[in-house]
Design a protein around this nucleic acid. Sequence first.
DNA 1: CTCTTGACGCCGG
DNA 2: TCCGGCGCCAAGA
Length: 115
Amino acid sequence: MDSMTMNTGSDEFVEAVLSFVESIPAGSVLAYGDIASFLGAGGPRQIGAVLSRHGGGVPWWRVPHADGSAPPGKDAVCARYWRAEGTPLRANGRVDMAAARWTPDLPSGLGVAGS
DNA sequence: CTCTTGACGCCGG
DNA sequence: TCCGGCGCCAAGA
């Protein structure tokens, strides 16, 4: 997909975000800003906007804030899902981003590639 | 064209 | 650690 042709608000962008979220394995999470960064389009707010409108069919609970906290109102629901999926949590009940943060499957051989 | 709003993120107190 | 404020990006009125 041409990232440069992907304009926020376009169905392409929406599908890309939803697809990305669906690809997140249970037990791992990604912050709004992380998705925007990996996607290479828009910003954290655009990701949140998409999930708020079309996130009804994807594991949106795997997409907390950068600090590991959950979206407004969904705090209790998220905690339940996180516990069920064994997501690394901190004492405060928020996600341990340092351990739960997921990265797309990169070509084998990388891992340590410090670039 | 300008102003406000929003499932964000980071910094300072 | 919690709270508030400012910055960012795009859509809507």
